[in-house]
């Protein structure tokens, strides 16, 4: 049975954790401290697109993804996931969660049994699991199914997660920092395989990543989370056009930047380089040309860094 790609929507979602105890996979108890993970998050993850989920450590990305997979309920607000026009609350909704594959950094594998045991479980539980494709990916990532995940290196465990995520062919596939420990050739093999399979089997993919520079080519849509709030959610091309860099004489650059939100500033003697939000007007562009100020675009990673940096936050609050 095939289902259309799933979209997802969050409306004013808050998640607050209380202090709790939990049992680890080793059978011991550990105390988890409380905190606010999401605070009024509103965002859309369009169906049938690859969305990059960006945010600094502790921004709330993992919690947000856990909500989409029905791993937990929000403290407040609503979460809707499903085919366009039929979105539903994913929590305890078998039709929805069986169509969502969240690959977490932690793995969700049987750490002390052979890799093949984990794959057998996913094959039994996942309706669209492609065993042949899983075998091809295992070959690609050079994974030995006779080993236990606990005996694999960090990179190989991540490759196992990538294999599960791709072979599940879920209408909503989510990778939460799946690249951890992977070497560069494996990461690029994963990106290529992701794009190839996405083209052959269209679905919705959310990719949470800190490696913005190397994964941004995959993104059609971008959501940036910062301190539990959605900073922006828009097509990747719109985000790429958000930032403008100005390099030249410090006074001229300061004049041009005056009407814009300043994201970043760097000075070296009489020369300054600033990043401002939004494009320049035609008049400003002409003035820049007259005063010898170079106008440039800002890579997505730089823009993300500037938007979420503590300095930018303080400056915008000023």
């Amino acid at each position: 049975m095939s289902l259309d790609p799933f979209g997802a929507r969050l409306d004013d979602v808050a998640v607050r954790y209380s202090t709790s105890w939990r049992v680890t996979q080793q059978g011991t108890f550990s105390k988890a401290t409380g905190g606010i993970a999401l605070d009024g998050a509103t965002s859309l993850f369009p169906a049938g697109a690859i969305t990059g989920l960006l945010g600094r450590n502790g921004a709330g990305k993992t919690t947000l993804l856990s909500l989409l997979a029905g791993f937990r309920r929000p403290t407040a607000g609503t979460v809707r996931v499903g085919p366009e026009g039929s979105e539903q609350d994913p929590f305890e909704n078998p039709a929805i969660v069986s169509g969502v594959q969240l690959v977490r950094e932690a793995g969700d594998v049987l750490t002390d049994e052979k890799v093949s045991a984990t794959l057998k479980h996913y094959a039994a539980a996942r309706p669209r699991w492609d065993s042949d494709y899983a075998d091809r990916l295992l070959d690609l990532f050079e994974l030995d199914v006779r080993k236990t995940p606990s005996a694999l290196s960090r990179g190989k465990r991540s490759a196992l997660g990538a294999t599960i995520g791709l072979a599940a062919r879920a209408p909503l596939t989510i990778f939460d920092e799946v690249y951890l420990g992977m070497d560069a050739p494996t990461r690029y093999a994963f990106y290529d395989e992701l794009l190839k399979d996405y083209a052959e089997h269209p679905r919705t993919i959310i990719l949470s990543s800190h490696l913005v520079e190397e994964s941004e080519r995959l993104f059609e849509h971008v959501v940036v989370v910062d301190r539990g709030r959605i900073l922006l959610a828009e097509p990747a091309d719109d985000m790429r056009g958000r930032g403008t860099s100005l390099t030249g004489n410090a006074d001229a650059v300061a004049r041009l930047a005056a009407g814009h939100r300043l994201l970043h500033r760097q000075e070296l003697g009489p020369t300054a380089m600033v990043t401002v939000e939004g494009p320049l007007t035609d008049e400003e562009a002409a003035e820049a040309a007259d005063s010898g100020v170079a106008i440039g675009s800002v890579p997505l990673q730089d823009l993300f860094v500037h938007l979420t940096s503590t300095t930018a936050r303080k400056e915008s609050e000023r």
């Binding site: 069986s98 169509g99 969700d108 984990t118 539980a125």
Partner: peptide
Amino acid sequence: AVTLPLHLASGGTRS
């Protein structure tokens, strides 16, 4: 303790 996270990750519900 091992089975619940695996079950939810493979598309199951608590039910």
